[in-house]
Simulated scan of single mutants.
Amino acid sequence: MKTVGIIGGSGFIGSHTTKKFLQEGFKVRVSATDISKTEKYEHLKDLPNAKNLKILPLKVENKNQLKDFTKSCEIVVHGGTPFQLDVQDPKTELFDPTIKGTENFLEVINETPTIEKVVFVASVASYNTNFPLLPEGKNSNDTIDENDKPFMSEESHPYAQAKFIANQTVEKFIKENPNTNFEITSVSPVAVMGKSLSQREDSTSSGLQYLFKNKIAPNPFVQMLFDTDTEFAIVDVKDVANGIYSASIKKGLHGKNYLLSSESWKISDISKMLNNETPNESANMVYKNDSAKEDLEIKFNPAKVPLTEFGS
């Protein structure tokens, strides 16, 4: 029985990933930034095979905790960077845990002999920090895939900038360390939708779905999405978990970064599907998923599946 460490394994994506690895017979170590806040991870103990689950304290800025967390792991999934849109202090809330945490993590895993595979849960922002808007130079008839030059703007949201820089940190490490004993593979989901496995109220993904469903705009960013009826690329959270699992167990994917995306829909139609109504228009395919379908063998659900599940 192999051991996987999942940093961020109690979050929205992380919980589904934890569930998948437990189903597949792994011992699973999940990190908790504050072990005393049991409400953040209590739901994981109700998952099938939870007897093989262990919760450990970890702040990615703390190298000693990282060493303790990753020791004895054959696989480590790093999905522990904060996803938040309302930010007071970008450096403290986003850049330090995302970028410095990635640097610390890479340093520690490079010294951990048991590790065979590392999977980074990156973001569509590693290809386009303007998401859900198109990158500069693209129009509504264009598609985006892994061969496009990544686009980064300093005017983009701090979260997107932090994820972009963190991904470049990973790429730099891979180039500078060509003889590691482990493989690194990244996955970059677009907007992740679906039903949460927990009752946590701090999930940005669940929060966005709630806002879209009820047509609430609490800030200028969300208001802009409604006003422009922005087209949003969507992926089912279960497909993301399957992609992470597949990237973890398949060999020969070192240095790859896969876009995980299904369909793109306008906000007005996303609202309709969240309310079990028929959309006005049809789906578009902006972010291509051919590489993920071929290499990771994912059969992506249409957007209606996670949107309907969230509303149920």
Rank of each mutant, 00 (worst) to 15 (best):
P90T: 07
T92D: 11
H78A: 09
N64L: 12
E116C: 04
E103V: 12
F212P: 00
D86A: 14
G207K: 01
S36C: 02
A32Q: 10
K293P: 11
Q84C: 06
L260T: 07
K45Y: 15
S72P: 10
S282T: 14
I174A: 05
T169S: 13
F69C: 00
E201D: 10
N257D: 03
P90M: 11
Q223N: 14
F95P: 03
N181S: 13
E103R: 03
Y159G: 04
D239M: 00
S248C: 12
N242V: 01
D202T: 12
S10Q: 11
V76C: 04
R29K: 15
S15E: 03
Q168N: 15
G80W: 05
V237G: 04
E277S: 07
S186H: 05
N179R: 07
K138Q: 05
E183Y: 06
P113M: 07
G25N: 12
I55L: 13
G8N: 04
D145V: 12
Q161Y: 06
T180A: 06
T18A: 05
F164M: 08
A247K: 13
K304E: 12
S188P: 05
F83V: 15
I75A: 12
N181R: 04
I75P: 09
N181L: 11
N284G: 08
E171F: 13
T228E: 14
T92A: 15
H78P: 00
E183M: 06
P189Q: 06
E154P: 09
S261D: 07
E107M: 09
T228M: 11
I270V: 15
F173L: 12
K67A: 15
S205V: 02
T114M: 09
N110C: 10
I270G: 00
N49Y: 04
E154A: 12
F21V: 02
S203R: 03
N110K: 15
S31A: 03
Q84Y: 02
P158T: 03
V76T: 03
T143W: 01
L66D: 01
A292T: 01
T185F: 02
E154R: 13
